[in-house]
Nucleic acid binder design. Structure first.
Length: 410
DNA sequence: CCTCCACTGGAATGTGAGGCGT
DNA sequence: ACGCCTCACATTCCAGTGGAGG
């Protein structure tokens, strides 16, 4: 995500020419940034964003923008692209700087400001040195202001994944610097967030100083995903992809999430599957396998991220599934098993009421399925719980947890 | 059509962790 | 350091549920 991948498109025949399936696998890498003419279906977003930042190009203040949208909807891509275009457009008339900060990496105020200063500073023109670490936050701010004023008329700063930032004061201080007269250079901020309510969560002081317009990125639809993938099909050798591969992969991705990153992932995976099974072409069945694999991965992640009590509950369900013929069980039955497991593992046993809610949460996440049945006078209304994925996958994943270890070597 | 079973699910309430202003 | 507030998680209590079977 952080570096351009132009460097690593190796042409060494030793490593490239022999591959039956891939011609240039880098095109399918997660961090790969496509060229401008390969950006699909985001024309409207691009022009809207450009309009907001227009000021920067002409030497007056650009507007701040908050971009929302799910992962893999092109938020970072479009932001970087527009920044680059702005920089090109401004060439002679205005000195304009751009910087990209990934708040997942630099998640505290000091880290963000220090890497901002480091990225924008050109030592040979300013004579300023920005140390990587060791200064107080306010020193870093001062360095940043100096750097900005000695080099630029305006800067555009992209703060990606801003919701991961531990506090919002960076937004406030950056947007206030100009009006407080600390700097002459004008600052435009593009803040990118996956969480829709991010701004609502900020406190009032930050909100009022960070005046901004909002921009919403919709998930890609199947057509757009298809085009995105076609734009990268030269990652494969010629005639290796059969015709139905990309449309199928696009359809899968679109109905599930509209995430371009995951869509490309499936495509790459399909290629790998084809290669490993010794085939010369990538076909529909490989896509299906890749999709299944992705599904399992998603599932693993879900189970892995579940709290311990939820894992115990799921474990109870898997044990029942393994030991009996049926695959769906009444809550009370699962609870009994759960109690056994808790006793064995020496952990707290939750009440039935809470246990029901935990199962329900898991149902919401799509790990289990709950069906309502009525046994009439033999016992009224019950819920039947069933594992959705293969129980082996769930079991394996749960037992990776150190707290569940004892159950594994019981 | 009425009963009746054993669980379901809403509501009230308790508890501990963590952030906030003073 | 202090109380205050909020939030997520958990418990307790209990009216409500709805079809099989009389």
């Amino acid at each position: 995500m952080t570096s351009d991948s132009s460097l690593d498109s190796v042409d060494d025949p030793l490593f490239q020419s022999g591959h039956r399936i891939f011609a240039n696998k880098d095109l399918l890498k997660i961090g790969h940034v496509p060229e401008a003419d390969r950006i699909v279906g985001r024309d409207e977003e691009i022009s809207k964003l450009a309009k907001r930042l227009n000021g920067a190009v002409h030497g007056y203040s650009p507007e701040n923008v908050m971009i929302y949208g799910k992962t893999g909807t092109g938020k970072s891509l479009v932001s970087r692209h527009v920044c680059q275009r702005a920089q090109n457009a401004a060439q002679d008339s205005v000195d304009i700087g751009t910087a990209y900060i990934d708040c997942a990496e630099d998640n505290t105020e000091t880290q963000a400001i220090s890497s901002l200063a480091a990225k924008l500073n050109d030592e040979s023109t300013t004579g300023i040195t920005v140390p990587h670490t060791g200064l107080s936050t306010s020193k870093y701010y001062k360095l940043l202001w100096q750097t900005l004023d000695s080099q630029f008329d305006s800067v555009i700063i992209i703060l990606d994944e801003i919701d991961l930032m531990t506090d919002g004061s960076v937004l406030m201080k950056l947007s206030r610097a100009e009006e407080a007269g600390k700097i002459d250079c004008s600052i435009g901020i593009i803040a990118i967030s996956n969480k829709i309510q991010y701004v609502d969560d900020l406190n009032e002081r930050v909100k009022s100083s960070f005046q901004h317009k909002e921009l919403f990125f919709k998930p890609y639809d199947a057509n757009q995903l298809r085009e995105i993938m076609y734009n990268r099909d030269d990652a494969f050798q010629e005639d290796v992809l059969s015709d139905d591969v990309i449309p199928l992969a696009a359809a899968f991705a679109a109905q599930e999430h509209g995430d371009a990153r995951k869509a490309i992932d499936i495509l790459r995976h399909a290629g790998e599957v084809a290669y490993e099974s010794g085939d010369d072409t990538v076909r529909e069945e490989h896509v299906r396998q890749a999709q299944q694999h992705a599904e399992k991965d998603r599932f693993r992640e879900l189970v892995n991220g579940a709290p311990t009590q939820a894992k115990a509950a799921l474990l109870a369900l898997t044990e029942l599934t393994v030991t009996s013929q049926e695959d769906a069980f009444l809550t009370s039955r699962v609870y009994d098993e759960y109690e056994r497991i808790c006793n064995y593992l020496d952990m707290d046993t939750l009440s039935v009421r809470r246990f029901r809610d935990i199962l329900k949460e898991q149902a919401f996440l799509g790990v289990v399925e709950i069906e309502k049945i009525n046994k009439g006078s033999a016992g009224g209304i019950h819920l039947q719980n069933r594992l959705i994925e293969d129980h082996e996958v769930v079991r394996e994943t749960i037992l990776e947890d150190s707290r569940m270890q004892n159950w594994a070597d019981r």
